[in-house]
């Protein structure tokens, strides 16, 4: 069994080897997951804001569904997207299966409910504070949603970061729709799965360490950016 210090040394060695292939894999992981989070937030945040502030028929049911979908197994999402994008599926003609685009689609579907549910939780409190004012001002639904999103933007970053955490760490969906094809759809998590299956446990763990480090760096960067922006806004 590999010991922890040798794994750590291996991880450091990997990062400073400046191996083009490793960096391409890291880059693809970031590109796919960040794009998915961007798209997930683009739809998820307004959806969460709508659930938090508007009353419409089916709101309760939709909230329950979104909350349940927060914990959807990535493999299931991967399977659904696979069936859609398969050449014998309804969107097969697009030829998207086994491409990074397919991975982005799968991860977007994976993180969107999470971002929507967390956004709803964040904005529900803000909405109860603003509700009477907004009703008194006769705001339209869209004005309400944009105002809530803007005023709650610092809290919403947390929702987006949770989405990023889920996206960058999942392997089930990208494995199925990406196929883990070398130089094309191989990302950090599928590489870790592959190395594990080859019995390269030390390498797999070292890659896991690199993945966690990148995840921490992304989180730290966005949170400090957030903090600075918040300070400037209150300056």
């Amino acid at each position: 069994m590999p010991d922890l210090s040798s794994i750590f040394a291996l991880a450091v060695g990997l990062v400073f080897s400046f191996d083009a292939e490793l960096y391409a894999i890291i880059g693809l992981s970031l590109a796919v997951s960040l794009t998915a989070v961007f798209l997930g937030a683009l739809f998820g945040i307004p959806l969460g804001a709508a659930l938090a502030s508007l009353s419409f028929p089916g709101r309760g049911a939709l909230t329950a569904i979104i909350n349940a979908f927060m914990g959807l197994p990535p493999v299931v999402v991967g399977l659904v997207v696979y069936l859609m994008l398969s050449r014998s599926g309804p969107l097969g003609v697009l030829g998207l299966l086994y491409t990074p685009t397919a991975m982005i689609i799968a991860q977007t579907l994976l993180v969107m409910p999470l971002i929507a549910a967390l956004s709803r939780q964040t904005l529900v409190e803000l909405n109860s504070e603003y509700d009477e004012l907004f009703r008194s001002l006769r705001l339209t639904a869209w004005q309400r949603i944009t105002a809530l999103i803007w005023d709650g933007r610092y809290g919403l970053l947390t929702a987006a970061l949770a989405g990023f955490g889920r996206a960058i760490a999942e392997v089930g969906a990208v494995m199925i729709v990406g196929g883990n094809i070398e130089h094309v759809t191989r990302v950090m998590t599928t590489t870790i799965a592959l190395e594990t299956s080859k019995g390269n446990l030390a390498l797999a763990l070292a890659l896991g360490l690199v993945l966690i480090t990148i995840s921490i760096l992304v989180n730290a960067a966005l949170l400090s950016l957030n903090k600075t922006a918040r300070r400037l806004a209150y300056a």
Binding site: E129, Y130, E132, L133, S136, A147, D151
Partner: peptide, 12 residues
């Protein structure tokens, strides 16, 4: 019409 509440509701 316009309304002012007991506890002012101010946007952040």
């Amino acid at each position: 019409q316009a309304m002012v509440f007991q506890r002012p509701v101010l946007l952040r």
